[in-house]
Design a protein around this nucleic acid. Structure first.
Length: 422
RNA sequence: GGGAGCGUAGCUCAGUUGGCAGAGCACCACGCUGUGGCCGUGGCGGUCGCGGGUUCAAGUCCCGUCGCUCCUCCCA
């Protein structure tokens, strides 16, 4: 019986890794331009970090989290997202004591137990930023500008993207809005699914993104969060929009946007692709002004976003598909003829590699012709070493693009291959 | 969560009313004994996703199961 990969967990093969590496490099470069520094947090956390931080009632924690006890029975979880971990680290290491805005970014695997499909895996990869320590609406706008800038770097067309924006208010607004929702849904409780009847008491906000058709119909004309903002939050939201306008960032106000995680406050946003089908959200984020305090730190406002790498890979590979085959990866391919040449060639390889040239040779016992074929598609130069060359103390160098071939002294080539290969 | 489609060679896929499992690409050998890209000839390669059922006979029909994909929804 063949052992296969676990459902929703896929291999990224060498054909695809260059694209991932390019993507990671662009993400790091963009984040660095905006003053963010990388933080690496564990893949495994205590369950309570997410049940408290993200919210017991959220779909991510309630239905999608990988939970298991360790050998001593401690309840652990594979992280379904990274913000809670970053904030935990921020509090745990007293980063707030530096009295400055902490700008942190991360890149890595997340785990959610969902039905896998294109652009949605059980192990997936997110990149994200967290700016912890300021309530300035200009910072909200800067974070969204960073999101846009990243997309520009990846050469995604601006017209193909859509920034959706909403405000869900602060912790003082929440009870008011919650009551409004409860009042609205309670009057129509007969049309709610059993799950949502429970949510009516525990977390009525979640009814807004229930999947049942009946609940969704009700949600469409439910009270809007923006109509229940305190003066401060209303001003904050107006300022954010003004700053976005200053930066020339188009956006669309979407009163139904609530986001799936409980820690969000005030600003919430999503950047969507217009040419991606069902899984169109490229990244999403917003403010989480109470999370630091909730996880044991001092009251500290924060804003950030997270995006999915798989979805960018889809968009990018569709866009780059026409670019064709990549250039040969190797500088040189050694083609040995006979056992003596193989032995002598192994020494040569070690020397040439240490000079900084990438070289490979045949270990499959291939014929000269087959080895030349491999050289032709993997390298810029072929080096032919056989009994004749060995007897003369030479090696034949062939430029595989031009077909030009010349014999060079073996010791000279081993000592200084760079001048002969360019 | 709801709906639909598809699983046949390493890859992309044919396979008719149930009747000998195929092609192209890739790989290997030879033509061309030590020189790649082009061409030709031959070869290697299969529990037809898995398990059951119907049948003289199942890749094909039926049931189950696992996986993949798409739509809806949600999200990254």
């Amino acid at each position: 019986m063949k052992v296969e990969s676990v459902r929703g967990m896929r291999d990224i093969l060498p054909e695809e890794t260059p694209l991932w590496q390019k993507l990671e490099a662009e993400i790091r470069a963009a984040f660095a331009l905006y003053g963010y520094r990388e933080i690496r947090v564990p893949l495994v956390e205590r369950v309570e970090l997410f049940s408290r931080g993200v919210g017991e009632e959220t779909e991510v924690v309630d239905k999608q989290m990988y939970v298991f006890p360790d050998r001593k029975g401690l309840p652990l979880a594979l992280r379904p997202e990274a913000t809670a971990s970053v904030v935990r680290a921020y509090v745990e290491h007293g980063l707030h004591a530096k009295g400055d805005l902490a700008k942190l970014y991360y890149l890595g695997a997340m785990f959610r137990y969902e039905k896998p499909q294109l652009g949605r895996q059980r192990q997936f990869h997110q990149y994200g930023v967290e700016a912890i320590g300021s309530l300035d609406p200009a910072l909200d706008a800067e974070v969204m500008d960073l999101a846009w800038h990243l997309m520009e770097r990846l050469a995604l067309r601006r017209e193909g993207l859509l920034l959706r924006l909403n405000s869900i208010g602060c912790r003082d607004d929440r009870p008011v809005y919650r009551e409004a929702l409860q009042g609205y849904f309670a009057a129509r409780v007969g049309d709610l699914c059993p799950e949502c009847r429970r949510r009516l008491e525990t977390n009525p906000l979640r009814i807004l993104d229930c999947k049942e058709e009946g609940c969704r119909a009700l949600a469409r004309s439910a009270p809007r969060s923006v109509d229940h903002l305190c003066p401060g939050c209303r001003q904050h939201f107006a300022d954010v929009q003004a700053h976005l306008a200053d930066l020339g960032l188009a956006h669309e106000f979407d009163p139904t946007l609530v986001r799936g995680l409980d820690y969000y406050t005030r600003t919430v946003f999503e950047l969507c692709s217009r040419d991606l089908g069902a899984q169109d959200a490229l990244l999403g984020g917003g403010r989480y002004d109470d999370l630091v305090e909730l996880l044991g730190g001092p009251p500290t406002p924060a804003v950030g976003f997270a995006g999915g790498m798989e979805r960018l890979v889809i968009v990018l590979s569709a866009q780059q598909g026409a670019e064709g085959a990549s250039a040969p990866a190797l500088d040189l391919y050694l083609v040995p003829i006979g056992d003596d040449a193989r032995r002598e060639g192994a020494k040569l390889l070690a020397a040439v590699r240490r000079s900084g040239l990438s070289v490979d040779t045949d270990y499959m016992g291939r014929s000269l012709r087959k080895a030349m074929q491999v050289a032709g598609r993997t390298a810029r130069y072929a080096a032919i070493l056989g009994p004749d060359e060995l007897a003369r103390g030479e090696i034949k160098l062939k430029n595989l693009a031009t077909g030009e071939e010349k014999a060079v002294r073996l010791p000279q080539f081993a000592a200084d291959p760079h001048t002969l290969i360019r």
